[in-house]
Simulated scan of single mutants.
Amino acid sequence: MEILVFLTLLVVGLHSAAAVTHSLKYFYTGSSQVPNFPEYVSVGMVDEAQISYCDSNTNRNEPKQDWMSRVTADDPHYWERNTQICVGNQPSFKANIETAKQRFNQTGDVHIVQMMYGCEWDDETDKVVDGYERYGYDGEDFITFDLKTETWIAPKQQAFLTKNKWDNNKAYNEQTKNYYTQICIDWLKKYVNYGKSSLMRTELPSRVSLLQKTPSSPVSCHATGFHPQRATLFWRKDGEELHEDVENGDILPNQDGSFQMSADLKLSSVKPEDWGRYECVFQLSGVKDNIITKLDKAVIRSNEKTDMTIIIAVAVVVVALIVIAVVGFMVYKKKKDGEAKALNNSSDSGSEQSERLNPQP
Rank of each mutant, 00 (worst) to 15 (best):
E273S: 15
V110M: 11
G195H: 12
K271T: 03
T309S: 10
K163I: 04
E62Q: 04
T58L: 13
V129L: 09
T224S: 11
C184I: 05
G276D: 14
V317N: 08
N59Y: 06
N344Q: 11
T149R: 13
Q212M: 09
F27H: 11
W275A: 03
T58Y: 09
T29S: 13
P76Q: 06
D348F: 10
L161D: 14
R134Y: 07
L188S: 02
V208F: 08
P228R: 05
S302A: 11
K266V: 03
N345L: 13
A340P: 05
M1T: 05
E62N: 01
S52L: 01
D141W: 00
E203I: 06
N303M: 04
H111K: 06
K64S: 03
P359M: 03
V270W: 05
N344E: 07
G195F: 10
T21L: 06
W166S: 08
D146F: 07
Q283D: 12
T149E: 14
V314T: 12
G195C: 11
I85E: 05
E62F: 00
R277Q: 15
Q212L: 05
I291M: 07
P76D: 09
F6D: 14
V326K: 08
F27S: 14
P38L: 07
T21D: 14
K266L: 05
A17F: 12
P359E: 09
F37M: 09
I153D: 12
D238S: 13
E2M: 08
Q102S: 12
G338L: 12
I251L: 08
Q175H: 04
E247N: 10
S349T: 06
N254R: 14
D245K: 00
G195S: 12
M330Y: 09
M68K: 00
V318L: 05
N345P: 04
E304S: 15
P63V: 00
D167Q: 03
A263F: 06
Q175D: 13
V113I: 12
Y132S: 07
P155N: 07
T72Y: 02
F329R: 11
N96P: 00
D337H: 11
L10H: 15
I291Q: 13
N173P: 04
Q106E: 15
L10E: 15
Q157P: 00
P35W: 02
D264I: 03
V299K: 13
M45T: 07
N344S: 15
D337E: 14
R81H: 09
D274C: 08
F160W: 11
N82R: 08
Q353M: 10
E247C: 02
S349V: 07
M200E: 13
P35Y: 02
V316R: 10
Q114P: 00
K333S: 15
Y132H: 14
L210N: 08
Q106T: 05
K196N: 15
V128A: 03
L233T: 05
E241F: 00
V287I: 14
K170Q: 12
S52H: 07
Y53F: 09
L343K: 10
S349A: 12
W235Y: 09
T8Y: 15
F6Q: 13
G328F: 04
